[in-house]
Nucleic acid binder design. Structure first.
Lengths: 333, 333
DNA sequence: TACAGTTACGGACCGCGTAAGCATA
DNA sequence: TATGCTTACGCGGTCCGTAACTGTA
């Protein structure tokens, strides 16, 4: 068994069983891959793929297991390389983060500023997208960290660590009737056209659920992935915005705390299970969420599954992130 | 990075940093290994070994970590091979067990008989030795299972599962004064010359401790690794034997239950942490200790450390193995 | 001088790439 | 006919083994 064979195998699987595409992604040729996979199958004494004619139709049941093992081997090799890099000079490298607009625009800048001051020679890569797009990047092993709110079921291959909680805020123009209502109810909100984030395709939305639990049907007239876009449409009078409190830094709009109206959200940080993290990655996590100490991260990194991780982080009190500059005013339940 | 480089590296370490010896054990030549290790160090950008002159003097601090990682990689590769073998024909293979005389002679025969009936094509290898010798075999990755009583501290690299408990028995010739004493005390025992097992170099002996706790000093005149040898000397009147109850199957000697006099012993089964077990190994464990079900073993196999294993098996009630044919009579505490 | 690792060199092997062949949609 | 895998073949690299060299006990 050779490592290249395993790399080829995994690449074929990751390219949808298209050998030609896998060859391109690895900068080699299609026959090279075909042959090595044949050799691997021969050595293992089993077929990894179902073949229809000459094409690869699907993974066999055994193939699934073999590919899973191959990924582990490659992960361990990558870990060794990563360890060596860390040992030889921990200040160099690449930090690749996939996250949503809200994090990238409102939360991460300060973390990244401090991180860059500490590690000026670590290159940063920030991928922004929907939860689904982030999940794809994660599945392709293209990122070190994913930072997302909710959608945990999309990320079963990740070790997930809660970072902070946040509440929503209601955003209206100064001349809006709600601008003088410090604590509107959901029923009141439901009477206005609403603008909020697009809903993830998977799982339920805590936004909709909050209304549904009171038998209300919100009038959502506009959704966007992007708080900035929502604000723009709030400014032109399209309706009432409901966005994350971290995203409220405007003075020309009135922000009303919606804590208590909607369930509190938790933002988490995830990384591929089994991957050895560089020291600067530990430090990044620590900068992003102070309770994620390097010692805790080290423990978490060796946990075999999410249940073990939850046992480690379950009883940590999470910080509540609010409007920039001042904590959001709470509405008693 | 290539797998051969890692194999070479590990072989050199396992051969006491002797490249020539490593070359022999791998059926290759010394320059081949030297060169590949150089190349590996070059690629990693660090020195794995401290060199004194031309010889390898010691592992560097980084080298220790790299070797540990290399072992993991090789372990995962072996796991993949093992998985493939299991998938292609689970009835073939090798089961290598290291254990002590008592297990090999008195406990394992029945388990192995049933195992062979189930897996006639699995070759069996039974290594018998002291706890220290077994630990060596384990360290060299030469065995699949270790079955030992006590001495857990010798086996930190193993996942350890408790299998059963047992008590000691006192063995005397029929004409011995003790032959009519159904429940002798430790103080009584201490008045006779005693024959028992040799004591492990590490850790304390529960045998000696039992006497010490009552302020007694046993008169141990003879120790052997082997219950058969002890019996032989009991027969010639050298003194009173104290051996494991499982080892008592004689009719020409009087066996007196010593449960309650000495702490109960636990025999465990261990296997290298992180190693993927063949299906027949699961079944062997199940045959040996019925509470070690394949499902439990699967959970245990993915546990990251012994603490997690203990959490899984901690509350299992262990069977008590006694004298062949009938359970030993208990002495109330 | 014996021993252990390094360097140098020739040969075998292996894996890649090109090109032609062949099945499927 | 186009796509995609397979087979065939020549090339280049790499790894190994032999042998001579060198530093150390």
């Amino acid at each position: 068994v050779k490592l290249q064979q395993l790399r080829y195998l995994v690449a074929v699987v990751d390219n949808g069983l298209n050998v030609t595409a896998a060859a391109e992604s690895l900068h080699t040729t299609q026959p090279a891959i075909s042959k090595q996979i044949r050799l691997l199958e021969e050595e293992l004494g089993l077929s990894v793929f179902h073949r229809r004619g000459r094409s690869l139709a699907a993974l066999t049941a055994e193939g699934e297991l073999i590919v899973e093992r191959a990924r582990r081997v490659l992960c361990e090799v990558a870990n060794m390389r990563s360890l060596a890099d860390d040992l030889v000079g921990e200040q160099q490298g690449l930090l690749s983060i996939a996250t949503t607009h809200t994090q990238a625009r409102y939360v991460l800048p300060e973390t990244i500023r401090r991180f860059r001051a500490r590690y000026p020679r670590v290159a940063l890569e920030l991928h922004q997208g929907t939860a689904e797009q982030i999940a794809e990047l994660v599945a392709a092993d293209a990122v070190d960290f994913a930072i997302v709110t909710g959608s945990r079921q999309l990320f079963s291959g990740l070790t997930i660590l809660p970072c902070y909680q946040w509440d929503r805020m209601i955003l209206v123009p100064p001349d809006h009737p709600l601008a003088r209502n410090a604590a509107p109810s959901l029923a009141t909100l439901a009477r206005y056209p609403l603008l909020t984030y697009v809903f993830s395709r998977v799982g339920e939305s805590s936004f909709k659920r909050a209304f549904a639990e009171q038998g209300l049907e919100p009038n959502i007239v506009f959704t966007a992935r992007d708080a900035d876009i929502i604000k723009a449409y709030v400014r032109v009078g399209l309706g009432v915005g409901v966005i994350a409190s971290m995203a409220c830094d405007e003075d020309d709009l009135v922000a009303i705390d919606a804590a208590g109206l909607f369930p509190r959200c938790t933002t988490w940080l995830g990384f591929p299970r089994g991957r050895l993290l560089r020291r600067y990655m530990f430090d990044f996590a620590h900068l992003f969420a102070p309770h994620l100490t390097p010692a805790l991260m080290a423990e978490v990194a060796s946990a075999p599954d999410q249940a073990a991780v939850n046992a480690l982080v379950g009883d940590i009190e999470l910080p509540l992130k609010g409007r920039a500059g001042h904590e959001p005013r709470r509405i008693p339940a």
